[in-house]
């Protein structure tokens, strides 16, 4: 109907004007005076008189609280999670990486590797500056040693510091994403709150102990 198109359009924009905003605040959200009083656990009036400086800050919008970002459990963040105890230095991840940015140097263990001792991992570097987070390395890992992480705030000033070393991976907070790891898909596991401390909890397969390996490869032969 010619002539009604514009008014009908304005009704739509008006409807959208009053619907709640979908914008998500990141990294902080302003809380205002009442929010600040609630944070301090006080009555707003008492908060205003007892802490005038903070009240003024809250009033002009300087008081903020950090916001948890909505992510799905499979989110491929740029903090890798690595359990060295699970790693056998097979270098599947390095072979599967489309860009070849994972560097692995391994040496045979104390005794010869064929006699039941696993390879020792000397260097495990991921050049995260070139990584595109496709997750193929995680998919390739047969022992669930490498996981995608859920964290993503990893900006640096220098390009060289984007190379994550084995030590850095070991010291980092272990919050694995459930990408290609169906054992983390259970309802009880929340990848954003829980930290996996023990490497036994991280995998689908139990890694055989040194005794078992020795029995399998040495004693039973």
């Amino acid at each position: 109907m010619i002539g009604l198109g514009l008014p009908r359009g304005f009704v739509v924009t008006l409807k959208n004007f009053i619907r709640p905003a979908v914008t998500e605040q990141y990294p902080d959200r302003r809380i205002g005076l009442f929010g600040a009083a609630k944070e301090a656990g006080m009555n707003p009036v008492r908060f205003l008189f007892s802490r005038p400086k903070e009240s003024f800050k809250a009033f002009v919008g300087l008081a903020t609280v950090p916001v948890a970002v909505k992510q799905s459990a499979r989110f491929r963040g740029n903090e890798f999670v690595f359990f060295e105890d699970r790693c056998t230095a097979c270098a599947s991840c390095a072979k599967y990486c489309p860009l070849g940015i994972i560097e692995i140097v391994s040496v045979p263990g104390k005794i010869d590797a064929q006699e039941g001792e696993s390879y020792k991992l000397e260097v495990f570097d991921i050049d995260i500056g070139r990584c595109m987070f496709c997750g193929l390395c995680v998919e390739a890992c047969p022992y669930d040693a490498l996981h995608m992480g859920t964290q993503f705030e990893r900006s640096k000033y220098v390009r060289d510091s984007l190379v994550i070393t084995k030590e850095e991976l070991g010291a980092a907070l272990k919050r694995p994403s459930s990408f290609y790891r169906p054992q983390f898909e259970e309802k009880t596991f929340d990848p954003f709150l829980e930290v996996i401390e023990d490497f036994h909890d991280a995998g689908r397969h139990e890694r055989p102990s040194a005794d078992e390996l020795k029995r399998k490869w040495v004693d039973e032969r």
């Binding site: 992510q71 799905s72 459990a73 499979r74 989110f75 491929r76 595109m132 987070f133 496709c134 997750g135 193929l136 998919e139 995608m148 994403s177 459930s178 990408f179 290609y180 169906p182 898909e185 309802k187």
Partner: peptide, 29 residues
């Protein structure tokens, strides 16, 4: 894009498909 994030963990650079299907089943949610 949120749905894609649930499926494969990425919003734009999905890489969801593999030869013979997809790499992982859709989550319950």
């Amino acid at each position: 894009l949120d749905l894609f994030e649930m499926l494969c963990g990425a919003r734009i650079t999905n890489s969801y498909l593999r030869p013979g299907g997809v790499f992982m089943d859709a989550p319950d949610e």
